[in-house]
Write a protein that binds this DNA or RNA. Structure first.
Lengths: 135, 135
DNA sequence: ATGAGGCTTCCCGTAACGGGAAGGTCAAGC
DNA sequence: GCTTGACCTTCCCGTTACGGGAAGCCTCAT
């Protein structure tokens, strides 16, 4: 299996697969012509990585997860902790975005959005970031 | 006012201020010794930028907003549209994160997290990203 | 033999800065 | 007058996870 087929089978772009090899996430064999030769085990790893990345894990977390995946003597505790930390990061991020969304939503709805220059959005922006706690 | 004071007054790190000058967001004067000399107008712009960035606008959006801010003949419509688009991006992002959070939350709570190797999280990851629609 | 795809490596660009080096400047204290 | 320490300057590298594109080899079908 060369890289095009590995890409189709794993759902990852060829560029990404090459990158994963470069940073040592996978180590496919090489044919005599220099082409990468992917074994089924490689395809499985790639699919694992694709899914992990899709769930938002960073590359380094994926590396750790892959290590745990291949370690028969792992403790599920270690896996869970990684996922838990990621989950918390997501919650923090959601919180930040919701806060942003609220502020921005207020501003947007307070702006007439017509041909006149007066704009509460610009007024808010011009009031700067410090001393911004006046509710 | 040199850069340290401008930083304190605007709430932006000096590094960021230099960067903003480099990409043409501001154009402070220079003293004879080569030090940047910030006028009040520059401080206002910096505060505007700090607030805009804090609201999640990209640098290019900030550039546009700053342009509108300084354009007395602007239409608030243009400002509102920029903010509206940003708002929609935020909503999309929140949606994605919530979806992720749901999936990840299920996985985390399904994992025993003990010393044993069995782990539903790894099982899920190993099932790859394609054909993942089976509810 | 030639053309169309694949494959290879290599290098640049992304967003928005942060860290740190090497060196000039300024105000204060001795 | 000199030194110290706190500023300031420019410059260059590193970050995340790849994507785009060039230059060139391999293979198969016409």
């Amino acid at each position: 299996m060369n890289i095009g087929q590995a890409a189709a089978a794993s759902g990852l772009p060829a560029k990404t697969i090459r990158y994963y090899e470069e940073i040592g996430l996978i180590r496919p064999m090489r044919d005599t012509n220099g082409y990468r030769a992917f074994a089924q085990a490689d395809i499985h790893k790639l699919a694992f990585l694709a899914r992990s990345r899709a769930l938002g894990f960073t590359i380094e977390e994926c590396r750790a997860l892959l290590g745990l995946y291949e370690d028969e003597s792992r403790a599920s505790e270690d896996v869970k902790r990684l996922a838990q930390e990621h989950l918390e990061r997501i919650d923090v991020k959601i919180g930040e975005l919701r806060s942003l969304r609220a502020t921005l939503g207020d501003l947007v709805s307070s702006c007439a959005g017509d041909h006149r220059p007066d704009c509460p959005i610009l007024n808010d922006l011009a009031s700067g970031p410090p001393a911004r706690k006046r509710r």
